[in-house]
Design a protein around this nucleic acid. Structure first.
Length: 290
DNA sequence: ACGCCCAAACAAGTGGCTCT
DNA sequence: AGAGCCACTTGTTTGGGCGT
């Protein structure tokens, strides 16, 4: 069953709404949670966001204090959050923004970097009880009304994508690619989302790995070099590459024998043009991909 | 014995660097 | 331009440990 009209409309709305957040300067990439978290923190702590690629420091406030911001969507009140490789020497504060699934701010925690252990940081109630920190309830967070409204709308659309069963997790691109591939190739999606290297099976039990990229022009990316990383050691027989357009519609699909992929560690997306044995499943609407 | 906490593993993605 | 690395990010599941 292909996507019905309602679901297509929902994907359109989601694409439009994410572009709106982009135009408003709330997000700069498609890491929605992290970007919205940085935005909320920048309003709360009145800091200026650093450039997209700046290491460790996400914001600098008027007094020159530096912030690292983490954001997490939670359904319960659990604060648990493991953070590895935190560079506490480079920052004054660690800020964690907890969101509800529709991006209402639930709680914000601000910890002085001097309270943090070196290396890995495990945020938990136990840890928080052992230090002094600042906790802000979501109800105290005031954003400009216009932006608050658009974030809320975005969050509601995100939740609808899940409740309408268009996506199974909060990974939109990967989930949709698996969905399209299962439709086109008559595959059964792997229930076990954690099994390494296998996303789906066909009727004969042959294994497929599905990789998806959303390919379209926007200011979100600096280069057009796109990769399919970490295919090494995956024992699927076939690699399915799915391209999505801006509206998350399928804009190309290829079936590639995994054994023919030359650079499985870090393959360029263009392998769909050059790899021997590649079968085109859905005609590409992207000029540089065939 | 069970549930909660929590760390680790696994997954998916962007993009930088060097060499050819 | 592409191969082969790497660093760094967010997000989800799992299974061990521990207290009630």
């Amino acid at each position: 069953m292909p996507l019905n009209k309602k679901k297509k409309q929902l994907l359109n709305d989601f694409a439009n709404q994410s572009d709106k957040l982009f135009d408003l300067g709330i997000i700069r990439t498609d890491s929605f949670t992290g970007e919205i978290g940085e935005y909320v923190a920048s309003e709360v702590f009145k800091f200026r966001k650093t450039d997209r690629v700046t290491r460790a420091v996400d914001g600098i406030d008027t007094k020159g204090k530096t912030y690292q911001v983490k954001a997490k969507v939670i359904e319960s009140d659990k604060v648990n959050y493991g953070i590895g490789n935190l560079d506490i020497e480079s920052i004054d504060y660690l800020v964690i923004v907890y969101f509800t699934p529709n991006y209402e701010t639930k709680r914000i925690i601000q910890i002085k970097s001097t309270q943090l252990p070196k290396g890995k940081v495990g945020i938990s109630n136990k840890f928080l009880n052992s230090i002094t920190y600042n906790s802000i309830d979501g109800s105290e967070v005031k954003l400009p009304a216009s932006k608050q409204k658009e974030i809320k709308k975005f969050g509601e659309l995100y939740c609808l994508l899940q409740s309408e069963e268009i996506i199974r997790s909060r990974r939109i691109v990967g989930d949709l690619g698996e969905y399209y591939a299962s439709q086109e190739l008559n595959l059964t999606l792997n229930e076990n989302k954690n099994e390494k290297g296998v996303d789906a099976y066909d009727k004969k039990g042959i294994k497929y790995e599905i990789k998806t990229r959303r390919v379209y022009e926007s200011g979100r990316r600096t280069g057009k070099s796109r990769r399919l990383n970490n295919l090494v050691g995956k024992d699927s027989k076939y690699l399915v590459v799915v391209a999505l357009d801006r509206s998350f519609r399928c804009a190309g699909m290829w079936l590639i024998p995994m054994a023919n992929v030359h650079n499985p560690k870090s393959a360029h997306l263009q392998i769909v043009n050059t790899t021997p044995g590649t079968k085109r499943i859905v005609k590409s609407r992207i000029s540089w991909l065939n």
